[in-house]
Measured scan of single mutants.
Amino acid sequence: TEHYTFHTEEQAQRAAKKFKKQGLPVTIHEKNGKFTLQVN
């Protein structure tokens, strides 16, 4: 499991699309105004 932190939801969504294209499951969590992208 890898985690990436982004300052905006837009950045997180863009990164999520790249991972999803590779067939990886992705979840985004919002915490304290930051967005954490979790790749399993």
Results as ranks from 00 to 15, higher is better:
Thr27Cys: 10
Glu10Lys: 12
Lys31Met: 11
Asn40Gly: 14
Gly33Pro: 01
Lys18Phe: 14
Val39Leu: 09
Leu24Ile: 14
Thr36His: 14
Val26Phe: 08
Gln22Arg: 12
Lys17Trp: 11
Thr36Cys: 15
Gly33His: 03
Glu9Ala: 11
Thr8Asn: 07
Lys34Glu: 09
Thr8His: 04
Lys34Met: 13
Asn32Met: 05
Phe35Asn: 01
Pro25Lys: 15
Thr27Tyr: 08
His7Ala: 14
Glu2Gln: 14
Lys34Tyr: 12
His29Lys: 09
Thr5Trp: 13
Ala12His: 00
Lys20Asp: 04
Gln22Gly: 05
His3Asp: 07
Ala12Glu: 00
His7Asn: 13
Glu30Tyr: 14
Thr8Lys: 04
Ala15Gln: 05
Lys17Met: 14
Gln22Pro: 03
Lys17Ser: 10
Thr36Lys: 05
Glu10Thr: 06
Tyr4Gln: 05
Arg14Phe: 06
Phe6His: 02
Arg14Gln: 11
Leu24Asp: 02
Thr36Tyr: 15
His7Trp: 11
Gln13Met: 13
Gln11Cys: 11
His3Cys: 15
Leu24Met: 08
Thr1Lys: 10
Gln38Arg: 08
Val26Ile: 06
Lys17Tyr: 10
Glu2Met: 14
Phe35Ile: 04
Thr5Asn: 05
Gly23Asn: 05
Glu9Gln: 11
Tyr4Gly: 05
Tyr4Asn: 05
Glu2Phe: 14
Pro25Arg: 15
His3Glu: 12
Gly33Val: 00
Ile28Phe: 03
His3Phe: 14
Lys31Phe: 13
Gln11Phe: 05
His7Lys: 10
Gln38Thr: 15
Asn32Tyr: 05
Phe35Lys: 01
Phe6Tyr: 10
Glu9Tyr: 15
Val39Gly: 02
Val26Asn: 02
Thr36Val: 15
His29Ile: 14
Thr5Glu: 09
Leu24Tyr: 10
Gln13Gly: 04
Thr8Arg: 04
Glu30Val: 10
Lys18Gly: 06
Ile28Lys: 01
Gln13Ser: 06
His3Tyr: 15
Gly33Tyr: 02
Lys18Asn: 07
Gly23Val: 01
Phe6Val: 01
Ala15Gly: 03
His3Ser: 12
Arg14Ala: 12
Ile28Thr: 02
Asn32Gln: 05
Lys21Asp: 14
Ala15Lys: 04
Pro25Phe: 15
Phe35Glu: 01
Lys31Asn: 11
Thr36Gln: 09
Thr5Phe: 10
Glu30Asp: 05
Lys21Cys: 12
Thr5Asp: 05
Gly33Ser: 03
Lys34Val: 13
Leu37Tyr: 02
Lys34Pro: 00
Lys18Leu: 11
Lys31Gly: 06
Thr1Ala: 10
Ala16Thr: 02
Asn40Phe: 13
Thr8Tyr: 04
Thr1Gly: 10
Thr36Leu: 13
Asn40Pro: 08
